[in-house]
Structure formats: C-alpha cells, structure tokens
Nucleic acid binder design. Structure first.
Lengths: 162, 162
DNA sequence: CTAAAATAGTTGACAAGTCAACTAAATGCG
DNA sequence: CGCATTTAGTTGACTTGTCAACTATTTTAG
C-alpha cells in the first residue's frame, strides 16, 4: 500500500459523503473532544456545564425547564444535576408551591466559575467557526434552527401529544 | 403551570441560546432518536449502519479507513464491526499483504439490506431538511464542511503529528 | 540485520444520553 | 369529595463513543 495518500473521503465523493447527518455527527464528536480537553483542568465535565448556562440567566428554574432548553431527556438532567450538586455548583430546593418540582440555584462556586466557563465556550465556538465570516455564521445558525425545529419535540418518553 | 406558554428559550434569548454548539448537540441527539425509531424494526442499530455506507462503495477497506471516514475512534469501529459481523452483515479477512489489517467485506444480507437502509437515510435527511431550499442546503453543507475541517484531525489517541 | 518506532486492531474503564418503569405530588372529573 | 390522569423527578438497563494501555505486526535507522 505504498502511496495511498488520498483518503476514503477523497476517493469516495458522492452524496453519501455529503450527508448533513454525517457532518453533524462528526462535528458533535470532535466538538466534545475539544471541550473535554478544555475542561480537563476544571472540576466539571462536558455533560454538566451546559445546565449552568440557563441558570446564569435565571435561577430557580426546574429540571423540566432545563431539559426543554436542550431538548434533552429528563434522566440526563437528573444525572448531570446530581453531579453538579455533588461538586458544589448547584443546590436543589423543593418548590413550595408544587412539591414535585425542584428549584435550582447556583452556588458561589458556580458564580465564580462563570468567567472561565464563558471563556471556554467562546474559545470553542471560535475554534469551530475559524475562517467563516459573520454573515455565513448567521445563515448557519438560521438553518440549524430550522433543522432543530424540524426534528423537535417528537420525543416518545417525555411529552407526547395530549 | 396555568399559562406558562413561553418556553425558557423564548424568555432567555441571548447569545448563549444561539450557540452553534448548542444547535449541533440538539440536532445530533434528536436525529439519533429519529434513527432509532426508524431502525427499530431492523436487525441493526444506529451505531452500526454508518460503517456499511463506505463499504457499499468499496469493499475490502480496513477499520482504519472506516474510522477516517467518520473521524471516529478505532475502538468504536472495532465494536460496531463486531456487532455487524455477529449479525451477519460483514466478514473480516486478514489482509495478506499486511497481517495487522483487516479487509472488510459485505455479506449477502448487507447487500440485500441496502435499499431499505438508503430509504431510511433519505427519509431522515429529508425530515431534517424539510422546508429548507436547495440553495440553503448547499450553503449549509459547505459551512459544516468547514467546521469539520476546523475541528478535524486533532485527536489525541489516534494519529498525532509526526 | 536487528533494535526501536510506528501502525492496526483489541480491550477495559468510563461518561453521556435514551427509554421504560417507577414514585409522589397535583390536577381534573364523576 | 375521591378516584383517575397527568406531571416532575428518579432509577435501572442499555447503547455510543472516548481514552489509555496493550498485542502483534510492519517499517525505519543504525
């Protein structure tokens, strides 16, 4: 196999190599690796930090609302918040008006971590979007938003019609 | 709960709700759910079928090449191919010229499955891209390709510089 | 030629995330 | 009211996928 310089992607260059689904999964996984590396020195993982973001805007929201923010399974939220609580980033309080729900609050540790976290988020976002101009990014977000909403809301376990 | 019609995303509508990273992960997960549902009736899972795609174009390629096609970890390929082999979709042969490598071939079962598989792939792709015109899709693929290459190749375990 | 380095594949341990089944509280309807 | 349904959260079992450490070949340099 002396000079097999061309990758499979260069040799096989048809529709199936250009699927949006393929790009999405490659980007998702690569992005995760990048985040793992950036977060390595901190006491928090890729699966947990996203839940802090909506909380920085508004504390006291419920796990349900956090799930909706990311269209994510309830079980994932429980587990991420358990870890965040264990590591001292959030506190859960029973909602006095509806004892099924929790109200989630940030600790001092989480508030102090905010600048570093947003630095990492910005870094990652910039890294992904290197050499892509602002207009193109705007168009991208627009299209991705449509795709999310095309796929959206059709979960089975969580909240079905009726 | 009475009239809490606005979701968190509608209330909190700043930069952090518009991150490309956020859209990517929402789309990735929703797309997986959709695929799981479509594949449910077949004897193959979401983690396995992607490896068939390059094989439909060219048989005999190695696990390494399959990994490169998806920028995926070697371990993931081993496991997916073990399942594909177990279910009778592929066969592995030792490459006679380099006994470290395997050459991977499709079975009759895999070849017969091809039309249904491509139907599902097309369905999923169409579902994601509903109401998005061709030009926009082209632009999207273009941008996603740039992002993949911005993130690309910087794996630690697999093949580093030098 | 031979020892060292690189490469393909494998395995174990782990994180993330889904689904399904469950609990407990709240709501709705007879 | 009081029973049935819905809802928020929890748990167990499972699939994907990563990293790190390992084996067995192959390649490279001395």
């Amino acid at each position: 196999m002396g000079k097999e310089a061309k990758s499979l992607n260069e040799q096989i260059n048809d529709e199936d190599s250009q699927l949006v689904a393929k790009y999405i999964s490659i980007i998702y996984r690569s992005m995760n690796c990048l985040l793992d590396r950036e977060l390595m020195v901190y006491d928090i993982d890729r699966g947990q930090f996203p839940f802090l973001i909506p909380l920085y805007r508004r504390e006291g929201i419920s796990q349900k609302e956090l799930c909706q923010f990311y269209n994510m399974d309830k079980a994932a939220a429980v587990r991420a918040l358990n870890k965040l609580e264990g590591k001292g980033y959030v506190m859960r309080k029973k909602d006095p008006e509806d004892k099924r729900q929790h109200q989630i609050y940030l600790t001092k540790k989480a508030k102090e971590f905010k600048p570093q976290l947003f630095e990492i988020i910005k870094f990652t976002e910039n890294r992904m979007l290197e050499n892509i101009n602002e207009e193109e990014v705007g168009q991208l977000k627009n299209t991705l938003k449509k795709i999310s909403s095309n796929l959206g809301v059709k979960k089975r376990g969580n909240d079905n019609e009726k």
